[in-house]
Design a protein around this nucleic acid. Structure first.
Lengths: 342, 342
DNA sequence: CTGAAAGCGCTTACAG
DNA sequence: CTGAAAGCGCTTACAG
């Protein structure tokens, strides 16, 4: 049972294959009568457009890829899940490509990947979404992309969280619990989100008339280990902070471990919270208070936006450079790692 | 700068394009002289074979996909990493497809995915690798696959761990620590590995003349929640088990949480261990003793094996149905969740 | 609004 | 060992 081709459909419907092509691509300028005939023939023959034929003729695959180098498995899995959902709905395949942010040959490797697969769109996850050389290379090759994260040097479209509100809300919550000595673990210095979150945190302190203490700010890199290291630093201060706010959950988990390994009771002696709401927050004891980053939905929207852009580029005239960015709100999720300071 | 095609190379080398095709496919029956000329022209023109052209002509894409429905993000990330490594080395794209083990339309969805992407090979992760209807469908459609897991009804090739040795070694270790009342959390009843691990556990008890107590066996499903639930059951027994062995790490993390939420000290009052060595084992406090499942390497080998099979099928005569299964040994990784029973 | 021709980049099947 | 022809399934560019 060979699958039907456009030729079979044309024969069946008694039209030219160009007309079939018009129908399956939803082009204008087809009489209703023709369209109906073709549609019937498509159903009768069980025709499915062969993506490879189209790809070759158009010189674009309509396949997209997720480009990652993210140190947090929980973060990535959620994002990936959403993206995959979007791709499946749009009947698209999703390629995966894992790269090394610091590799010298990063650009060359990605170009090779493009050659090998002929993908024509990328979803760029952090931190790779903030790599200017990469974005410029993609612009040059005219490969579409969408970034997961905040606006960055006006490059491309993006889908992201309202990072400022996220950290502002978390910090405000800690302050409501009466914490004043709040340690803060910053994000990766190469990522745009780090600065926005830090600004949100500081704003919350200012708005509540709490003095910002520089020595309660520790550098992190969004990894578990960096959270652990930052906590080691902060927990050595006297007086000790009564709360530590890590700017993502992966680091918050590291903070929790470090505290526990020192016999510090969480939340009784130390409150801890993060941002993202990845799966590890509900797998450690106690469960970590965090801010929900709707990653599944963000991934989904990113995929849909990108795919629609690709499809539009193909059908109609280019529609200008209007950008369809989307910024999501999350919400505070209170769990067991935070407590009122007596 | 359009990329060079096989025609450009042929012109440059002064040969027919068929000869170029022979060279790039490494076929026999090309004189050394021709081969050298062509190879030079390939370099001079910067030619890269367009996978889409090949795919269309051969009616096979040479793209493979990872088919998953695994409840453990840590497990999947490691596996995925290895597979991706293999694909990148072989200059192949890896599609991702996430499905629902229990979905009624599972087969239909996967067939649709195949139609949409024309993948011609699958890496099948657990539990989906043990779904007989799926394997039969792939056999029928002549789509190659490789399974991650133990041998199963003699279907296809597989790459997996020596699961029996894994659980035997872990159990033996607990016994050496003097534990006799050992709770065991079984794996998913639909997965072949569950039975093999259980057999290994029982063998260790028998070999050490410890009586198997049925009420210390709890059903799990390889998920975190099922580990937590199983632990709740086991920790209610009197006398309480002094150790709980969960047949994967995801469940072991659930067991740890349940114990801690009851105020049971780990490892002083309860030893806990798992299998896999996924990332969560070193992110919870205390770090979990486990058995290393070389998932990255397993994924890598699976990808390489599958890709080579596809390439061979294309070049030379089919090479019979000799199977290249690979079974890896792991090793016990002792961490902080287990202690000598006084 | 519709279609015949040529082409995308590669391979298969055949002839020499 | 080498190549000219036809074809994979689709689209573009053009003519009517």
């Amino acid at each position: 049972m060979k699958t039907a081709t456009i030729n079979d459909v044309a024969k069946q419907a008694g039209v030219s294959k160009k007309t079939v092509s018009r129908v399956i691509n939803n082009e204008a300028n087809v009489s209703e009568e023709m369209r109906a005939k073709v549609q019937k023939a498509i159903i009768d023959t069980g025709f499915k457009r062969n993506p490879l034929g189209m790809a070759l003729a158009k010189n674009r695959s309509l396949f997209i890829a997720l480009l990652t180098d993210n140190p947090s498995p929980g973060y990535l899995m959620k994002l990936q899940k959403g993206i995959l959902q979007g791709c499946t709905e749009e009947h698209m395949g999703l390629f995966l490509y894992d790269c090394s942010y610091y590799s010298n040959s990063l650009l060359k490797e990605i170009e090779e990947f493009i050659d090998n697969t002929l993908v024509d769109g990328f979803v760029l996850a952090p931190p790779i979404c903030d790599k200017l050389e990469l974005l410029e290379m993609l612009n040059r090759k005219n490969i579409q992309y969408i970034r997961i994260g905040p606006s960055y040097k006006n490059q491309g479209e993006f889908v992201g969280l309202n990072y400022h509100k996220a950290s502002y809300d978390v910090a405000s919550y800690l302050i409501r619990l009466n914490h004043k000595r709040i340690g803060y673990v910053k994000g990766h210095p190469d990522e745009e989100s780090s600065f926005i979150k830090e600004a949100g945190f500081k704003q919350a302190l200012t708005d509540n008339k709490i003095e910002l203490e520089d020595n309660l700010m520790a550098q992190g890199y969004y990894t578990y280990q960096s959270g652990k290291d930052a906590a080691a630093l902060l927990l050595n201060k006297t007086p000790r902070p009564t709360a530590i706010f890590a700017s993502n959950d992966e680091m918050a988990a590291g903070v929790l471990y470090e505290a526990q390994s020192r016999g510090i009771k969480v939340p009784q002696e130390l409150s801890i919270c993060g941002i993202d709401d990845i799966s590890i927050t509900t797998k450690v004891f106690p469960n970590i208070t965090t801010y929900r980053h709707p990653l599944v939905n963000i991934g989904y929207r990113a995929a849909v936006l990108l795919i629609n852009r690709l499809k539009n580029k193909q059908n109609s005239a280019p529609q200008g450079d209007s950008k369809n960015n989307e910024i999501f709100d999350g919400e505070l999720v209170i769990r067991d790692s935070t407590a009122q300071l007596k």
